[in-house]
Amino acid sequence: MVFLEGNRCYLRTLEEADVSAFTNLVKRNKRYWSIYEPLHEDEFYTEHTQRKKIIESIQRMRLNREYSFAIFAMGTSDLVGHISIYSIKRLPFASAFVGYSVDKRYIGQGIASEALELVIKFGFEDLSLHRIEAYVSPNNIGSVRVLEKAGFLREGLLRKLLYINGNWEDHYLYSYIDDDF
């Protein structure tokens, strides 16, 4: 288990015991998150599917390929989001992607920004990465702000990158390099 602590939130790698709280988070934010992410079939929003996803993330963590964190509000056991550093590649790349989602009820409280800062530090200091990348919809102004506030730089537009709810959507590619850390 990996534990990262900030001022507004703390992160802990997801465990199988988190399945109920995590499934509730995913269900509660189904419509809100589907603005920028694909809306899934009903089966996705069940404990059965979320348990499988958590188990897969634990297996990838053991292989040092992904770290999926639950985000908790500081001073509570309230699971308020998740953030992952994934697709970890070793040399010659030494890179990974980061992705995050925060419960609609906690938007605007600095939790996504702090969780991202904690994962960036973990990526560069503990995983010895050289580059961390993120995709973000140009329409997701809040997430663009989170990335830019954290020090990510926009490298370009990836045309029609992701198929989201019946449409191919453009996404910006952002990166953060260890030299800037």
Score class of each variant (00 low, 15 high):
Val26His: 00
Leu91Ile: 09
Gly142Ile: 09
Glu169Ala: 04
Ile88Ser: 02
His82Gly: 05
Lys149Leu: 09
Lys104Leu: 08
Phe97Lys: 09
Arg62Asp: 12
Phe93His: 15
Gly6Val: 00
Ile83Asp: 01
Leu63Glu: 15
Ser68Ala: 14
Ile107His: 08
Arg105Lys: 13
Asn7Ser: 14
Ser137Val: 07
Tyr45Thr: 06
Tyr106Gly: 05
Leu116Gly: 00
His171Phe: 08
Lys149Trp: 07
Ser77Pro: 03
Ala96Phe: 01
Arg51Met: 12
Glu66Cys: 10
Val119Phe: 02
Glu114Leu: 02
Gly110Phe: 04
Arg8His: 04
Trp168Lys: 11
Leu157Ile: 15
Leu127Cys: 04
Phe181Ile: 06
Asp180Pro: 00
Cys9Phe: 01
Pro92Glu: 09
Glu5Tyr: 00
Arg105Trp: 03
Phe22Pro: 02
Val144Thr: 09
Ser34Met: 11
His82Asn: 14
Ile177Asn: 02
Tyr86Leu: 11
Leu63Lys: 15
Asn140Val: 07
Asp179Val: 13
Asp170Phe: 05
Gly99Val: 06
Gly81Met: 07
Leu158Gly: 05
Tyr100Gln: 03
Arg60Ala: 10
Arg159Gly: 07
Leu14Arg: 03
Lys89Cys: 09
Ile120Pro: 00
Asn24Thr: 12
Glu125Asp: 12
Ala96Met: 05
Leu14Phe: 05
Gly151His: 10
Lys30Ile: 08
Arg31Asn: 14
Glu56Gln: 14
Glu66Ile: 04
Val146Glu: 00
Ser68Leu: 14
Ser95Ile: 05
Ser77Ala: 12
His171Val: 11
Ser101Gly: 10
Ala112Trp: 00
Leu127Asp: 01
Leu63Asp: 05
Arg60Pro: 00
Lys104Ala: 14
Tyr163Val: 06
Phe152Asp: 01
Gly108Pro: 04
Gln59Ala: 12
Glu155Arg: 14
Glu155Ile: 07
Leu147Glu: 01
Tyr100Met: 09
Asp126Pro: 03
Arg60Thr: 05
His130Tyr: 11
Tyr106Thr: 08
Glu133Gln: 15
Ile107Met: 12
Tyr67Glu: 02
Ile58Gly: 02
Ile177Cys: 03
His171Cys: 11
Val80Thr: 10
Lys104His: 14
Val98Trp: 00
Ile58Thr: 05
Arg154Lys: 15
Ile54Asp: 02
Arg62Val: 05
Ala17Trp: 07
Ala70Asn: 01
Asp179Tyr: 12
Val102Met: 07
Phe97Glu: 04
Ile83Glu: 01
Tyr172His: 11
Ser113Gln: 14
Lys104Asn: 13
Leu161Cys: 09
Leu14Ala: 13
Gln109Cys: 07
Asp179Lys: 15
Asp170Tyr: 11
Asp178Cys: 06
Arg145Gln: 14
Arg159Leu: 09
Leu162Gly: 03
Asn167Val: 13
Ile83Arg: 01
His171Asn: 11
Ser128Gln: 10
Ser95Leu: 06
Lys52Gln: 14
Glu125Cys: 06
Phe69Lys: 08
Glu41Asp: 15
Cys9Tyr: 02
Arg154Tyr: 08
Ile164Asn: 04
Arg60Tyr: 08
Phe152His: 06
Ile177Pro: 00
Gly99Phe: 03
Gln59Gly: 06
Asp78Ile: 06
